[in-house]
């Protein structure tokens, strides 16, 4: 995306439009196990983004010929609800963009899952964006990893993602919708936080070598914060039930 001339994204004291510092994430809240009918689920609020993820599986593959003889088939569908965007109502039909995002999300999650554990089965990840405000693909990844863990899928690590952008020549963490639109670049990055391995990295706009290196450092720092929230969400969901049980013993 080219620089939107005339749109000021930074105030005089170097703060962003929503008052954040350059390396500050928006408020993030994750809840695990929000759906009863799915095998695993998660809900994430990242700033004004609201995304719900449902996971089904491991289950029998339909259509059957898509089954893989030696591993599990991971399928993802990222979809935005018609009212999720600020502009005109989005058509409910999958757009090119949604199809692409579904693919990159699948590829970002795949390395974390022990796919070979359940051959000839599938795991389906359905991502519904209820409200969008920038960085939805990485927020979706963060929530999808929680939903997969909630479904009891064997994993090496969770996956969390954050976008690094360039606004007025400076790198900034976790772009909002308006910063994405008028900024000079957007670089979504996802990692396995404990292993520190990158599973998604895209970019539009121009970044120098130094900027890429710095972006990765900034992403890692932010991802570790998101990782804490992911763990908290998963633990809280079950600890509550376990604590209730202990209280009952008295």
């Amino acid at each position: 995306m080219t620089a939107g001339a005339g749109v000021k994204l930074l105030t005089e004291d170097g703060r962003r439009l929503d008052g954040r510092a350059l390396n500050e994430l928006r408020r993030c809240r994750i809840e695990a196990g929000v759906l009863k009918n799915a095998d695993g689920s998660a809900y994430i609020e990242l700033g004004r983004n609201k995304i719900i993820v449902a996971v089904y599986g491991p289950r029998e593959v339909h259509p059957r010929h898509e089954a893989l003889p030696d591993r599990m088939l991971l399928r993802c569908r990222y979809s935005m609800l018609p009212f999720s965007v600020a502009e005109e109502r989005k058509s409910p039909a999958p757009t090119r963009r949604e199809v692409e995002i579904s693919k990159v999300i699948r590829e970002a999650l795949e390395p974390a899952i022990f796919l070979e554990e359940f051959p000839r089965t599938s795991v389906d990840v359905y991502i519904e964006v209820i409200e969008a405000d920038g960085s939805t693909r990485v927020a979706s990844i963060t929530a999808a990893a929680v939903a997969l863990a909630d479904a009891g899928i064997p994993m090496r690590d969770l996956v969390a993602g954050v976008s690094i952008g360039k606004i007025e020549g400076k790198l900034a963490v976790d772009l909002s919708g308006i910063e994405d639109q008028h900024g000079e670049g957007d670089m979504p990055i996802a990692m396995m936080p404990r292993l520190g391995e990158v599973t998604l990295m895209q970019a539009d706009g121009r970044f120098t070598r130094e900027e890429v290196a710095q972006a990765l450092r900034m992403a890692r720092e932010a991802i570790l914060k998101l990782y804490e929230e992911q763990k908290r969400a998963l633990k809280e969901r079950y600890s509550k039930v376990l604590a209730a049980e202990l209280g009952e013993e008295q």
């Binding site: 863990a149 994993m155 090496r156 690590d157 404990r194 079950y238």
Partner: peptide
């Protein structure tokens, strides 16, 4: 409650249930 990828124990422990080991470090798998 432990999440996938979380470090459970290190050293000469006997870990039962789904885990991944990397040397003498044991991580939860599910």
């Amino acid at each position: 409650v432990v999440v996938p990828g979380e470090l459970v124990a290190e050293g000469s422990y006997e870990v039962h249930g789904p885990f991944v080991a990397s040397g003498k470090r044991y991580y939860a798998k599910v």
